[in-house]
Simulated assay, not measured.
Amino acid sequence: MDLVKKKVKFSPIGYTRYLKGLKKCHSMFREGRILEKLAVKSWQIAPEKTTIAPKAYFLENQLERITGTAFTDDPHAAMHGGFTVEHAPTFAYKLKDIWMINGFLYKGLYNFRLHPSFQLSKKMNYFPPAIIDTEIDNASIYSTSEGNQYFGLWLTDDCANYALANQEGVPVTSNIIPYSHMLEYESYLEMNPFRTNAAYLKNAIFFDDNWGNNDNKHLRFEANRNKILSLFPGTSHPGVFILRRNSGISRVMLNELEIAEKLREKCGFKIVDVTQNTAAEILSACAGAKILIGIEGSHLFHGLMALEAGSSVLILQPPNRFSAVIKNTTDMENINYSFVVGIQKGDNFYIDFEEVERTIDLLSF
């Protein structure tokens, strides 16, 4: 493992955004063409893969309730499946002379954002440091701006990429900790990144799979899940409901607690609260669950870190924000995907419990 050096260096590169020639800021990553252009070396880690998207489990007329979507262009096609999915290969890119300042990575007139702008110091955006006291000979960047904005993508993508980064050099990320459960997961997954907001990276390895769920990605995700299950083994039980409450992007389900309590009373479900319980408590409840249920959102990825192949998820979808993002992971892990679309009431929505029961029956193989 390459050591981190304390070495004072001066660079005004953080101020290049004010210069006319600075190119567009890019999110980190999904920028393979640009990374290849800037790289001194690139190589393929894993080949592409082709799969057929499976059909979701759902009742008739559910899709007709959808009035809006998030990160899903065609919910009808996504839920009916049957189409070919081309999963991109995973590549690594080696770049030289990278400056990491206030959540941004600078290379020449290109910069890459590791964190959403609302997480970054506004003062440092206008007055970024010019003196860097940390130098790393061989660094590996595994975190992404998408992962630092959405907890679920951090668990599925960034944590899986850590295994690649750890083989290539010092795993580096910025010192912002955006999630309350992050440090717990880093401990469980044996992640020990170097956090900094002001460093010079002599050599840096970047990774890109353009959201592809190829076999290598599956194996890295599976390895992380096995680490979790070794710490939180569970016996088979009917299911778990993860309460979202007011966490993350607002999508208020008026009868969330009522549905959870009915599932506990009638079906023997466990209930955990992402705003109150520790990651250990959530994972302990999820281990062994046959069905994971909750409002669509990143909090459900706690459960996906513990579900075995052949289990199921039932997503309670806001009609004005239908999203199929979680299906990308359930398809990769051979987990059955089902959903119920809520009924709009003002700015919020509610779920018909009888429809939940009927959808669970569809999952009773």
Rank of each mutant, 00 (worst) to 15 (best):
F269E: 00
E256Q: 10
K290L: 08
G268C: 10
I291T: 14
I295T: 14
E265C: 03
T330Q: 11
S247C: 04
V325M: 10
L257K: 13
H299W: 07
G297F: 05
I343M: 06
S338A: 15
V340T: 13
N277Q: 08
I291R: 13
E256Y: 08
R251F: 02
S311F: 09
L307R: 02
L304Q: 05
G288V: 08
V341C: 12
I295Y: 00
F301Q: 10
A280R: 03
I326G: 02
I249S: 09
L314I: 09
L316Q: 13
R264I: 00
H299P: 05
E256N: 08
Q276A: 11
F322G: 04
I291N: 11
F301M: 14
L307T: 06
E308I: 01
P319R: 12
M253A: 12
E296I: 01
M305N: 05
C286E: 13
S338C: 08
R321V: 00
N334C: 13
R245K: 15
G297C: 08
S250I: 11
I343A: 06
S284E: 15
A309T: 15
I326V: 11
A280L: 01
V274C: 12
N328D: 15
V252F: 10
L283E: 03
D273L: 03
I295A: 15
Q276S: 10
I282N: 03
T275M: 14
C286Q: 08
I271L: 05
L307M: 11
M305E: 07
L257T: 12
G303N: 08
T275A: 12
L307P: 02
F322P: 03
I259R: 03
L257S: 10
I259L: 08
N320R: 09
V340E: 07
E296H: 04
S323W: 01
G294A: 07
M253W: 09
L254P: 02
A280D: 13
A289P: 03
N246H: 12
V272W: 01
R245A: 14
I295E: 12
V341K: 14
L263G: 01
D331V: 06
H299S: 06
A280G: 13
A309W: 06
R245F: 02
V252C: 04
A309G: 10
G294V: 04
